[in-house]
C-alpha cells in the first residue's frame, strides 16, 4: 500500500490542504486574523493552537468510552480550557513578549470552532493515535493559513520578515512606501478571501 493512501497519512494531510479548516471549512477564523500582523505572533499562535487541538483530541479520544453522553460538551470544554490555560501560563513564563502581544487571543482558542469541532466530529469516534494525528493535521492546516496571511501582511505592511527588514533601502529611496493598510483589520479579511478563491480553484482542478 502506498504511504499516501493509508488512513494515517490521509488523516494528517486532508486538513492541511484539501480540507483546510480555515480556508475551506471556514472555521476558526475568529482568533486567526488579529494575530497575523507579524509572522512571529502568527507562528506562536499556530503552535499553541496545534498543541491544544492535538492534545485535547488525544485526551478525549482516550476517555471517549467513559464520558457520559449528557455532559459530553462541558467535559470537552473543561479539557480544552485546561490545556489552553496551561499553554497561556507557559507562554507567559517563557515567552513574555509574545504573550503580551497575543493578549487575549490565546484564551480565545477555547472558543475556536476547530478545537471543539475536531473533538466532537473526530476524537469521539476514533482511536487515540488517529485522533492525535488529526489534531496535529488540523492545527498545522490552521497554522499554514495563519502564516501565509501573516507573511503577506508583514511583508507588504512593514517590509519585514520575522521582524527583520528585508526590503532593501533602495526601494524606499525610489519612492516605495509600506502599505499601512496591510496592518489594519480589513486587509486580513480581504487576503483570506483571495486565498480562498485561489485554493478553491486549485483544489477543484486537482480532483478533476
Amino acid at each position: 500500500m502506498k504511504l499516501t493512501s493509508t488512513k494515517f497519512f490521509r488523516t494528517f494531510s486532508q486538513p492541511l490542504w484539501g480540507n483546510n479548516p480555515v480556508s475551506i471549512q471556514s472555521l476558526g477564523i475568529c482568533s486567526a486574523l488579529a494575530v497575523t500582523v507579524q509572522l512571529k505572533t502568527a507562528v506562536v499562535m499556530g503552535i499553541s493552537m496545534t498543541v491544544v487541538v492535538a492534545f485535547s483530541s488525544l485526551l478525549i479520544s482516550l476517555i471517549r468510552n467513559r464520558i457520559p453522553r449528557n455532559i459530553r460538551i462541558i467535559a470537552e470544554l473543561i479539557i480544552i480550557a485546561t490545556l489552553v490555560i496551561l499553554t497561556d501560563e507557559f507562554l507567559r513564563a517563557f515567552y513574555y513578549d509574545i504573550s503580551k502581544q497575543l493578549s487575549v487571543f490565546v484564551g480565545l482558542i477555547i472558543t475556536n470552532c476547530i478545537v471543539l469541532g475536531r473533538t466532537e466530529a473526530f476524537a469521539l469516534s476514533n482511536p487515540p493515535h488517529l485522533a492525535f494525528i488529526d489534531g496535529i493535521g488540523n492545527g498545522a492546516g490552521y497554522s499554514a493559513a495563519l502564516i501565509m496571511v501573516a507573511f503577506i501582511r508583514e511583508l507588504l505592511g512593514s517590509g519585514k520578515f520575522f521582524g527583520l527588514k528585508i526590503l532593501p533601502g533602495i526601494f524606499y529611496t525610489a519612492g516605495y512606501e509600506d502599505m499601512g493598510f496591510m496592518l489594519l483589520a480589513p486587509s486580513a479579511f480581504i487576503i483570506i478571501g483571495l486565498m480562498v478563491w485561489l485554493q478553491k480553484t486549485w483544489v477543484k482542478n486537482d480532483t478533476k
Binding site: 455532559i71 473543561i78 479539557i79 485546561t82 496551561l86 507557559f90 513564563a93 517563557f94
Partner: peptide, 30 residues
Amino acid sequence: SLLFALVLCLICGSLLAFASKGLKNRQQDN
C-alpha cells in the same frame, strides 16, 4: 455523570493550580 464531572474537575483543577504555582515566580520575574 456527577462522579465523572467531579473527577474531571479535580484532575484539571489540581493540574492548573500546580502549573500556576510553579510558574508564578517566573511570570512575576518577567
